[in-house]
Amino acid sequence: MQRRDLLAGAAALSGTALGGAYVTGFIDPLGSTGSVEHVELESIDAPGSQAGEITVPQQGTVTVLEFFATWCGVCSRQMEPMGAVYDDLGHHDDLQFLSVTNEPVGRTVTREDVANWWADHDGRWTVGLDTDLTLTERLDASGVPYTYVIDRSNTVAYAERGYKAPDELADPIERTLETR
């Protein structure tokens, strides 16, 4: 392969990465439909979040889930639209709304670091840990931020990488809430 082609490939890679997610997808991340097996995640003590265990996704509710990492700049930017959507739709009884970090938490990055990041970014809903990547793997979340809307039967209705404006998030959530 000629250098020119390689550079073209390289440019494409970076080009797709510019949006802020690792790469904005040209492949279907899930590749298949079907329900997602739930996982027990640790939730941490942070604004709007209590230390405990949560079942994700919670069958019978619509789940809005965003994977993030504290090192991720785009994830910082994503907190504002997430907050707007949470304020707008978070009151629904049958909506599970949470953010999950899948970075290695426990040693260098502590629960307190995550909680501080959360407070700094005006987080006000449940925040959980997927340190062992179980849920990340199950949903094939290959980057951060990565947002999912999962319907009441635990089937993924929406999965998108990268920055999303409030409208882009609200649409699939409202649609999924309306689907019975």
Binding site: R4, L7, A8, G9, A11, A12, L13, G15, T16, F26
Partner: peptide, 14 residues
């Protein structure tokens, strides 16, 4: 050499 639009490069890659 490849200051042309990223979309071109992307297409090449695809």
């Amino acid at each position: 050499r490849h200051s042309n639009a990223p979309s071109f490069d992307r297409r090449r890659f695809l």
